[in-house]
Write a protein that binds this DNA or RNA. Structure first.
Lengths: 239, 239
DNA sequence: GACGATAATTAGTCTAGGCTAACTCGGTTT
DNA sequence: AAACCGAGTTAGCCTAGACTAATTATCGTC
């Protein structure tokens, strides 16, 4: 039961990021996500399959086994606790913290992780609202909807700003922007206007008035507080 | 200027530990210290020599260059700051902290190190009193003498408990013992009796009375406070 | 049902960093 | 001076994990 190499951990994490529900992930997608060639992926999937961490159906992609999923969740847990620590205790800004956590998540021992977790108060969410799996790899279920799905008049609380796996420049800039205008977990927002035909949303975040398109809200998840007067219809998963 | 691999860092650190003044270290000694075969050492020394980190005179051992020494001191700095953090902030016990620092010293970024250093208050010494090099690799000089060199009646302040490079079970147990009886950096000790022929020392540490042989004091360095009444002769480096 | 495009796999290399076995050099003994 | 011994080096091999080039499956189209 030797610890997994850094590389193997990265593959498992990627697999989880690309298919949290355990769907099959194509080789090429994994290769792109990890910035590695497709043959390298095939090769590594073979080894991970031997260790029963993934199921690899040739030419039909790979999926995590229950064991692999546990490992992946353990890595996610380490990452998110570290990120929380780096931001809240050490005061790094988020994208710095993200990069450092990316490295440290592979090298931190259980006891140091436990101590850090205690230090930051056993958080259930990282600084961007991503849920932190518990020691058994359990994630608490949440009922979140994309901010862009709110309707006129709806109020909601921001719960999570997805970093979409690997935040590159583009993404980091947008997250920084959100932070600047106060669109952070816990913030209360109100949808003032929705013009579907123009793909325009006008919303209120604290004192800020924000006008965006769907794209500009990508990855912002909220918990809906039906408008007090509210009788706009039932909530459902309409496309 | 790619960062050095973990392995290379370990070789440089070992070289520094075995020859802090830059003396030549035999291949076999390095091999033993790193738990690696002699041919592996020869091989790695070749590569480090190409990078101008060491000077390797075939069959005459290796020594750090100025550049290599700088790298080694940077690693020592990381290690000691981390150890201080792990003990003082996270509350790990020393031997745990040591093991974790051994890993993390290779993976912590400058900015995280700086933040941790700030958090623990820019210490000049780690929890065992080892001096922490500054960012430029400078170590402050200290005038410490081995505790076993005190003479009857001398008082001194404990400044450093050497961990002798790689603290194995034996060593860790002794350090734990010292901690239990209050023989820690900052403690005041008084030599009550010295019986050279029996190799026996009796000393006072706080309320504890300690009786040991030379061996049992190996690696305890103190700063002498000549006994107030003191006129026992001049201090010198007598063998 | 054959044909191409595209994705995936196989085959073969490379580098880092280990290892063992065999050889060589330099100092000590006789 | 010759022989010897042990530390150090050379030679050759191994594994992890990447790569490129070449090959093969599969799927959608005609």
């Amino acid at each position: 039961m030797t610890a997994l190499s850094r590389s193997k951990q990265d593959y498992l994490k990627a697999l989880y990021a690309l298919a949290p529900e355990g769907e099959a992930v194509p080789t090429s997608q994994l290769a792109a996500h990890l910035s590695v060639s497709p043959p390298s992926v095939t090769n590594m999937l073979g080894r991970l399959a031997e260790e029963r961490l993934v199921k690899h159906a040739p030419r039909a992609g790979a999926r995590l086994t229950a064991l692999g999923r546990r490992e992946a969740l353990a890595i996610v847990r380490r990452h998110r606790i570290l990120e929380t620590f780096l931001v809240r205790v050490l005061g790094l800004d988020w994208s710095e913290a993200h990069h450092d956590a990316e490295v440290l998540e592979h090298h931190i021992s259980d006891r140091v992780l436990a101590a850090i977790d205690r230090l930051v108060g056993h958080p259930h969410e990282d600084p961007h609202g991503h849920p932190i799996p518990d020691v058994h790899g359990r994630l608490r279920r949440r009922e979140l909807v994309p901010l862009a799905r709110l309707r006129r008049g709806d109020r909601a609380i921001v719960r999570e700003l997805r970093d979409a796996g690997s935040p590159t420049g583009e993404r980091a800039a947008r997250m920084k922007h959100w932070q600047d205008i106060g669109l952070v977990p816990g913030a209360v927002v109100r949808m003032r206007e929705v013009r579907p035909l123009d793909d325009v949303f006008e919303l209120q975040v604290g004192t800020h008035r924000l006008v965006t398109g769907t794209e500009g809200l990508e990855g912002v998840l909220v918990e809906v507080r039906r408008s007090p007067s509210g009788r706009h219809g039932t909530r459902g998963a309409q496309a």
